[in-house]
């Protein structure tokens, strides 16, 4: 396949950045989107130009390191996939493809397609865990968890922290990301003691990081590579309201 690529180039956070156009030949339909970018970078190196910087690691859709806007869509056009798992057979010979970094105020661009998602880690530092010390855990089967609850917790826990939800959201909101962790721990008996302080801590930090508010657009769920549902957002909002109204906890 032959492709016409329009790629965002930005040397540093201070640089204003610009699009550059590249022509790429001999792209295999069986290659992944990132393998296509590897090919572009080899071509740029041959021309002794700086390759396009992009984040990636596992290339099997689980580490959450990669993330690009492909023609304005987070992770590209195939639902339930990260961009590393997007294959070129979904494009046609001669296609024009626009490639940009996540555009979120709380994810500043570092270089080209690389952004800083440290804000996600900081949200989780405000309660995204269960407080206990190694060695104090009781026998595993002393905590019984109905299968459907465990399954729901698992649905939320599959979040890979890639940031597509925030990138797709017109408000640049991290609500789905935050709700996934709140939902994961909130569905488990182990997560109950800290349930309400957790939701307040995390939601407040999300706001402090400069993420926008949620207006129930639903773009987050539609691009989420793990297809995490919006119902976790409703549950988080419910928990947050209960915490604020003082009807929660003890």
């Amino acid at each position: 396949m032959k492709l016409h690529l329009r790629v965002w180039r930005q040397t540093s956070a201070e640089d204003r950045g610009r699009f550059e156009d590249y022509e790429l030949d001999d792209v295999s339909p069986d290659s992944s989107f990132l393998e296509m970018l590897d090919l572009l970078n080899e071509q740029l190196l041959e021309q002794r130009k700086m390759p396009v910087a992009f984040d990636h690691d596992c290339r099997e859709g689980i580490c959450g390191m990669c993330g690009l806007m492909v023609d304005g869509m987070a992770h590209g056009p195939i639902p339930g996939h990260t961009v590393c798992q997007l294959h070129m057979r979904h494009f046609k010979d001669g296609d024009r493809i626009v490639i940009e970094p996540w555009r979120v105020a709380a994810f500043p661009v570092v270089q080209d397609l690389v952004v800083d998602r440290g804000s996600f880690d900081r949200i989780l530092q405000h309660g995204g865990f269960i407080s206990f010390a190694t060695g104090t855990a009781p026998e595993a089967n002393s905590i019984l968890i109905p299968k459907d609850r465990a399954d729901t917790a698992m649905d939320a826990a599959t979040c890979i922290g890639c940031g597509a939800c925030a990138a797709a959201c017109p408000n640049g909101s991290a609500t789905l990301f935050t709700a996934a962790k709140v939902g994961h721990l909130g569905h488990l008996p182990q997560g109950q003691p800290e349930r309400y302080q957790r939701v307040v801590g995390m939601v407040d930090q999300m706001d402090a990081e400069g993420f926008g508010g949620c207006t129930n657009v639903g773009a987050c769920t539609s691009v989420c590579p793990k297809e995490i549902g919006q119902d976790f957002i409703s549950q988080m909002n419910r928990d947050y309201r209960r915490a604020m109204l003082g009807g929660a906890g003890d």
Partner: peptide
């Protein structure tokens, strides 16, 4: 065996039987 206890305490959603056991 301790590792499984540790994981459960952390909230690792291991697969469960209908009775709630691992």
């Amino acid at each position: 065996t301790e590792i499984i206890d540790q994981g459960v305490a952390q909230g690792v959603p291991f697969a469960r039987e209908y009775g709630g056991y691992l």
